[in-house]
Amino acid sequence: MRGDSRILPSEITPEPVYLARRSFLAGLAGAGLAAASTPALAQVVNVTLVPRLEFRRNARYSTAEKANSFAEVAGYNNFYEFGTGKEDPARNAHTLRPRPWSVVVDGECEKPGRLDLEDLLKPHPLEERIYRLRCVEAWSMVIPWIGLPLGDLVRRFQPTSRAKYVEFTTLLDPKQMPGQRYGVLDWPYVEGLRMDEATHPLAILAVGLYGRVLPNQNGAPLRLVVPWKYGFKSIKSIVRIRFTERMPRTSWPLSAPREYGFYANVNPAVDHPRWSQKSERRIGAGSLFSRQPTQPFNGYAEEVAELYRGMDLARNF
């Protein structure tokens, strides 16, 4: 079965009532404090209007942990381009126009170019990956992403031998992204990965979640997901992918070099200078006392620890 990211008109047809947002909420009944608070959040996205995607499940790279509700995933976000409060993106991201969208791929590669999103995605079947997401602020979620392996896309553009890193850039448009009117960060947002990180099978570019096109506040139409790193590495609303020889100057280390590093691997042994990273609060875990220990590389050590063999992870935080 071949997935396709193109959205057919038939897919935009409103879903039957059984898929209405109440079905997302039904699973939360009795789940405790968090559950009680989600109905209002759910209203920020009318799920039935979000186009569905074709995909196959990738069980190998998916966790069996219980996924967070759509309302939580789409209602509690860090996306400073739409405000610095957790609920700001859901409230403000309607100004983003995720289609039409094009992405520039350039730098150290054989086949640079500017591609429409559809052309960028066309050759790649979509798959669902249920990943843990660990924010640097010590909270976490489990999210069923729909996306494609970043490595497959990277290889298509034939990076040269000088390409040591991949740099990603978010859209810069204060009209669409009102948060960019304030110099909270040095806009546009920039992230980066080492080439071996970018081509690791766990790294994906996501175009959807919960089987549907990404809500704007989750980084529509195209975002990175690197589950073994803190959430801020997973850059949203990407307009440029550039292959570089030098380590990209990424936004958070530029803003506070003592607090955020380029690697930003989830690591309970290396605290943030201001708070502990030993444990995390799982959003919607159904209990007030929902702190749980943080795992090295967010539980993906088996897959990715070898990338960092011999590196001092306390220095390269």
């Binding site: 404090l33 968090a34 009680a36 608070s37 989600t38 109905p39 209002a40 959040l41 309302a71 939580e72 209602g75 509690y76 957790k86 609920e87 909270w139 609060r281 959003i283 919607g284 007030l288 929902s290």
Partner: peptide, 18 residues
């Protein structure tokens, strides 16, 4: 009211933090 889950008192996705 939020802790007691009364309708209208919405503590959001991360009620402990809220």
């Amino acid at each position: 009211a939020g802790i007691l889950q009364w309708p209208g008192a919405d503590l959001g996705a991360n009620p402990v933090e809220k």
